[in-house]
Design a protein around this nucleic acid. Structure first.
Lengths: 331, 331
DNA sequence: TTGAAAGCGCTAACAC
DNA sequence: GTGTTAGCGCTTTCAA
């Protein structure tokens, strides 16, 4: 790595002159600036970010803690985070908690070592189930800035980005009802998450609005992936239904596939919808209509909030809770 | 952030005493060590990694450049990288090139600013198609250490981890043949990648070995996702086949789903296999048998190679090319 | 118009 | 057994 010192030596000037020349300070002669810049270019000089960080206490780096990178939703949020962060001149130090509270705590330890200006987190499912947010409380006490996304929690006072889970499922359910459906199966493999109750409420709210009685037997808990196929199969074989809504990213694809196997004659009559994106929707045929969470936008917005918070030096910040609009994509 | 200086002041000792006490140097009195450690614990002292990095030129951070985080394969590799890196005491600075050479170059710029000890990369498809590896050559000239994975290239001399693409597809094809199949559709949405020719060779090699004539009409190019469904549909409707092998992560799921729609009577007789993992295989029903790339292991191995290379101070390194074994998982 | 010096947080050689 | 000093790469104030 080329350093200022090396440049200074080669040019027979002082380090501070080189530093100022490169930042176009107006107390350096044009001629000197030119020489300095040329050599810097030739030797491919890059300022050392560690030194900058040490000096200024600003690292232009955001920490990111993701519960599960194999979940396409989180992968897409990460995509949005990276895109926006780079656009704004920030890098990302990424950790995957793998849904474990301990791993999440370790991640925060790593991030809290002076290398980030703030972090963006969606808590692990274990953290949510055990309601153990002490590490986030600690971060707050240490005045470390962070933004929560997706799995947000009321107990933590900070900036938050999520979709309106209840409304998203409400809208999708109404969409099914508008298609004349009323016997709607409800599929969920995220019963271990706090957002699942919001989504269920949205479902029930839509049923109630349209005077459809909810039927507990129509609500399938698929949280255990080992038994999910069996659960769906048994439902399909024994119930009279005309639609299915999945409140996670996978169940709709599974459901449709099993439907084709066990009640192929029904395929044309049953409408399935789930959370998805343009790409995963096409894994099914016919492609599934889907609830677009706009995961990329969630990531982008989280970065915007984070940067806003970082710039904000006030002692009494007013935190924001942003809800990203979802939409039903009919294909 | 608590610093050594603050601890020193509170304890009325010098900064170096605190530093040594915390690292258990044996020229510090037991009593002093105890006092120092207790206070450090109480104030939640964490050494500043930026300062450590500046001082020692060692950051214990690995750069990672991934072409596409929405691809489950890369997501899983990243998972393996993170897992192994954390285990070995390294953090990861992750960049997504989004299959663009320019973004990849920018990513390397970011990473080359003194904050990483080396980087792990799988090049963007654009980089491979345009055969433009100058930025990696540059990295080599600057003596920056890196490991390539999956999309490895002979022209670059460095450590590499991949699967044996030809063998993986050869094995899977033979597996189909062993089931009595001979009219095998070949599905690929990765015709823009260098590895696709290896995979195709594996397919042809297996056919040749078993004296099956290859039929070009059976080889479907699905690289354009917009036309993929149509291409498959038209093939299914007009050809006589008894199996399908997908050399990417999606096509097999699509193929099976379209098969159920357009030739449901064939579903029981046609065997489909593709690259996948335990989770994505279950998106289909019946779950698909799959070629397990052991993506997690690829990531882990890449980290091992990277760390080995970092520790290796020799001027004339002997680079390794590791092939991770794949296996056919029959479900 | 340029340079010297201090300091960000840390470690290590050397002195006391 | 403990402290002083220098230095990693950089910016910035102040002096020349």
């Amino acid at each position: 790595m080329t350093t200022l010192k090396q440049l200074a030596k080669l040019l027979n000037v002082s380090v501070s002159t080189v530093s100022k020349a490169l930042s176009d300070a107006d107390d350096i002669g044009e001629e000197t600036k030119k020489r300095v810049k040329e050599l810097a270019e030739t030797l491919n000089y890059k300022p050392n970010k560690l030194a900058l960080g040490l000096k200024s206490n600003v690292t232009n780096t955001l920490g990111v803690v993701i519960p599960d990178i194999l979940n396409p939703f989180f992968a897409e949020v990460l995509y949005g985070i990276q895109k926006q962060a780079n656009k704004k001149g920030y890098d990302t130090l990424v950790c995957i908690s793998n849904e474990s509270t301990q791993t999440e705590i370790n991640a925060l330890e790593l991030l809290k070592q002076g290398r980030i200006d703030g972090f963006i987190i969606s808590p692990a499912s274990e953290t949510i189930q055990t309601n153990n947010f002490s590490h986030l409380d600690a971060a707050k006490n240490e005045r470390i800035k962070f933004v929560m996304f997706d799995r947000v929690d009321n107990k933590i006072e900070t900036d938050k980005v999520s979709i309106d889970d209840q409304k998203a499922v409400f809208d999708a359910t109404e969409w099914l009802i508008s298609k004349g459906k009323s016997k709607i199966a409800y599929l969920s493999n995220i019963e271990n998450l706090n957002i699942s109750s919001d989504r269920r409420n949205g479902f029930h709210e839509a049923l109630a609005k349209h005077k459809i009685d909810p039927n507990p037997n129509f609500e399938l808990n698929l949280t255990n992936i080992e038994t999910a196929h069996k659960t769906i199969e048994s439902f399909i074989k024994t119930h009279d239904f005309d639609a299915a809504i999945s409140v996670d990213n996978n169940s709709a694809i599974m459901f449709q596939s099993l439907l084709k196997s066990f009640r192929p004659e029904l395929v044309d009559q049953i409408t399935c919808i789930g959370f998805a994106n343009a790409k995963t929707s096409k894994l099914a045929y016919p492609p599934l209509s889907y609830i677009n969470q706009n995961a990329t936008k969630i990531g982008e917005k989280a970065v915007d909030l984070m940067i806003e918070r970082i710039k904000d030096k006030s002692d009494n910040p007013s935190y924001k809770q942003i809800k990203i609009a979802t939409d039903v994509v009919e294909v």
